[in-house]
Simulated assay, not measured.
Amino acid sequence: MTTIATPPRPAPPAHRPAGGSHTVADSITMLRRNLLHVVRYPGLSIFVIGGPVVFLLLFVFVFGGTLGAGLPGVDPDGGRAAYLAYVMPGILAITIAGTAGGVATTVSMDMTEGITARFRTMAISRSAVLAGHVLGNTVQSIVAVALVFGVGFALGFRPVAGLPEWLAAAGLVALFSVAISWLAVGMGMQAKSVETASNLPLILTGLPFLGSGFVPTDSMPGWMQGFALYQPFTPFIETVRGLLLGTPLGWEPALAVGWSILIAGAGFAWSMVLYERKSVR
Rank of each mutant, 00 (worst) to 15 (best):
H15A: 15
H37K: 05
Q190M: 14
S141T: 04
T196S: 12
G102P: 00
L202T: 14
F61G: 02
W223T: 06
L155C: 07
M109H: 10
R9I: 14
T239W: 05
M88P: 03
I142T: 10
M111Y: 06
A144H: 06
L249E: 03
V48A: 15
A14H: 12
N199G: 04
L36M: 13
S125E: 08
G68S: 08
W251L: 11
T247V: 03
I237A: 02
S141E: 00
L36R: 13
A104L: 09
L36G: 01
P253R: 12
K192H: 08
T205D: 01
T23W: 13
V178L: 14
L229K: 13
A81K: 08
A123I: 03
F236P: 01
T217N: 07
T3R: 13
F157M: 12
A100S: 15
E113V: 02
A131F: 02
V24W: 15
T29I: 09
R9Y: 12
T121W: 00
W251R: 08
V48F: 05
V185N: 03
V107K: 10
L204T: 09
A82F: 02
V87N: 05
S27V: 10
D110Q: 09
M187L: 14
D77V: 14
R126V: 11
L56I: 11
S193E: 02
G114Y: 11
M272I: 10
W259Q: 05
P232E: 04
